[in-house]
């Protein structure tokens, strides 16, 4: 996610500099919030894959600093592989979110209390092998979902970056088992030429009869083994014949951000 020279000429990039955001990504979260009022009533947040920290800055400003009534101290936890310089009201953790140990550390920080909102803007280093990149991206989302099932309060919201590649409809179907409402949203701050979009998953509904249990020596796949979320993950007695009929679903698409806001594809 290094800044290419293209980014530097981008209006959002310049605007981010002016307004003191660490990355132009801030506008994506702001535009998503404009559309979906993500921060309403939210006091406890996990920001996954957060470095350099512009989403955390937004969360700090909107949740920590605007916390006037002060009934309880807001909690924002930001996690990334990369180190992050401190942000007011944000607890940072340098760790790999695909590792179960990281998830249990986050749970510890929250001390048994649920979170209201979990977001992830994570993206792996692109290898160029499209299917491998999509798999790793899906793993980041699955790890975030693992945390979600352990930490998010019922009714809570989950937002994550996706790339609308070939199996994204499978991912939508999986999310449909955990959330009442799944939307694919594209802020105008994301380039039209990029495949990047965000899933906005609202009203978390725990899977009936399934208690998520985080074990340190367990892979993400194993974690979800007994939760029926569309794809069959459990290793059975047989490797079944390939089923092209896996459940797929297309989430509704919403472009967000005002039409009068800047166009990230335009040359000004």
């Amino acid at each position: 996610m290094g800044k290419s020279s293209k980014d530097k000429r981008d209006l959002y990039y310049r605007k981010a500099k002016e307004e003191g955001w660490r990355a132009r990504s801030a506008f994506k979260l702001l535009q998503l919030n404009e559309q979906f009022q993500l921060f309403k009533g939210v006091r406890r947040v996990v920001d996954l894959c957060a470095a350099p920290g512009s989403w955390s800055q937004v969360l700090s400003r909107e949740i920590y600093e605007k916390n006037v009534d002060g009934e309880s101290e807001p909690k924002i936890v930001a996690v990334d592989l990369q180190p992050m310089s401190p942000i007011k009201g944000v607890t940072t953790l340098q760790a790999d979110i695909t590792h179960p140990k990281t998830l249990s550390k986050i749970l510890d920080i929250f001390g048994g209390e649920p979170a209201d909102f979990i977001c992830s803007d994570g993206a792996p280093d692109v290898t160029g092998l499209h299917d491998l990149d999509e798999y790793i991206q899906a793993q980041l989302i699955l790890s975030a979902l693992q945390l979600t099932t352990c930490l998010l309060k019922p009714g809570g919201t989950f937002v994550a970056k996706i790339f609308r590649g070939r199996d994204i409809d499978l991912m939508y179907a999986q999310l449909g088992y955990l959330f009442e409402n799944v939307i694919c949203a594209k802020p105008r701050a994301s380039r039209g030429t990029s495949l990047e979009a965000f899933i906005v998953c609202r009203n978390y509904t725990p899977i009936p009869g399934w208690t998520p249990q985080l074990k340190l020596n367990q892979s993400t796949e194993e974690f979800f083994e007994d939760a029926s979320i569309a794809r069959k993950n459990k290793l059975g007695d047989k490797l079944e014949n390939y089923l092209p009929t896996e459940e797929r679903h297309i989430a509704p698409f919403v472009a967000c951000g005002d039409l009068s806001s800047y166009d990230s594809d335009a040359t000004y």
């Binding site: 367990q218 290793l235 007695d237 014949n241």
Partner: peptide, 16 residues
């Protein structure tokens, strides 16, 4: 008819 699974092994390190 698919492949029959005889078993699975791990070394207690299930990182990606």
């Amino acid at each position: 008819g698919g492949l029959q699974v005889n078993g699975s092994y791990n070394c207690n390190e299930k990182s990606i």
